[in-house]
């Protein structure tokens, strides 16, 4: 199928992009990142933007930087670049693990880190990772840059806290230091299908037990959700198979979630999967 007509601009700096965006106030203008979600929507004529602002040639929006206590991943860094980044692999391996499972290789060559976050599809793999790692999003607004924790960034289905004139610059991923293990458990019907449920887990191990854990869930609501009740129960759970302590802790994974119904799963099944996959994700993260 074929997209409807739109205007197209390709700024070369973020400031220029922001200016265009502000001038377009009122028009339906969309930022074009890698286009791997937006272009199919345009082709199916599910979206009719008046104009696209292509962020693809803004050098300052690309790359991964190691910055003291965190890693900064610029918004237009492609999934492929993220997966291959030595800094990401060493300092925030959960991001690499989950990003490697986004779509397929060709899509990862075009799709971007920031595009996935800003698209805010609760079935996407990266938003849950952002929550689990307490990423902080850096946003350019009319007043300058502001930062927003992941917990406040994802507002609703396909909706973020980004205002109409704002551009996502990237995210700070806190370095968690020694002793942490990670896993992203994705459950889907075919390799390139969206996650029915996904679980991002980060686990700190001390002396054979879990001392701290972070768990966030993909596709268990209109936004990614943090499984705080599981996290509260994880400290003290033995890393090796104990007497079902981990299973017990994971059993609350779906508490307070409102998972969707779609072609592949109804809510009760998703809740069940969240529990089973949380146990598996934590176990693998702790291994």
């Amino acid at each position: 199928m074929i997209p409807a007509s739109f205007e197209y601009v390709r700024p070369s700096t973020v400031e220029e992009a922001a200016q265009i965006l502000r001038n377009a106030a009122g028009d339906d203008v969309k930022l074009l990142a890698g286009g791997q979600s937006l272009l199919p929507l345009l082709r199916l004529r599910l979206a009719y933007p008046a104009a696209l602002i292509d962020l693809g040639r803004i050098d300052e929006l690309r790359g991964v930087r190691d910055e003291a206590d965190h890693v900064f991943i610029a918004a237009m860094t492609t999934h492929d670049e993220v997966v291959k980044s030595a800094v990401v692999q060493e300092q925030c391996p959960l991001v690499a693990l989950a990003t490697a499972q986004v779509a397929d290789p060709a899509v990862r060559h075009r799709g971007t880190f920031g595009g996935s976050m800003a698209h805010a599809d609760p079935a996407g793999d990266l938003p849950a990772v952002a929550l689990a790692l307490d990423m902080e999003f850096t946003i350019l607004s009319a007043e300058g840059t502001r930062t927003l924790p992941a917990s406040e960034f994802f507002v609703d289905y396909l909706e973020t806290a980004l205002g109409p004139g704002e551009i996502l610059l990237g995210a700070k991923v806190p370095k968690l230091g020694a002793g942490w293990g990670f896993h992203y458990e994705k459950f889907h019907r075919t390799a390139q299908a969206w996650a029915i449920v996904g679980v991002a887990a980060a686990v700190k191990r001390e002396n054979g037990t879990i001392s701290e854990g972070r768990v966030a869930l993909t596709n268990m609501g209109s936004t990614p959700v943090r499984a705080f009740s599981v996290e509260r129960r994880l400290p003290g759970v033995p890393v090796a198979d104990g007497n079902g302590e981990l299973r017990e802790a994971a059993s609350t994974a779906a508490n307070d979630t409102e998972p969707p119904t779609d072609l592949h799963a109804r809510p009760d099944y998703r809740r069940h999967l969240a529990v089973v996959l949380t146990e598996r994700a934590v176990r693998k993260a702790a291994a």
């Binding site: 199928m1 197209y8 390709r10 074009l32 286009g35 791997q36 272009l39 199919p40 082709r43 199916l44 292509d54 693809g56 492929d80 779509a103 397929d104 290789p105 060709a106 899509v107 060559h109 075009r110 390139q192």
Partner: peptide
């Protein structure tokens, strides 16, 4: 296809695989 699922349109763009149905010609400038 319309949704970048099938990969029939895959080409190499600056050496890497992309689905040419999900890239605008202007993006390939």
């Amino acid at each position: 296809c319309d949704t970048s699922n099938c990969g029939a349109c895959t080409v190499l763009m600056d050496g890497r695989s992309v689905k040419s149905c999900s890239v605008l010609a202007v993006q390939a400038d």
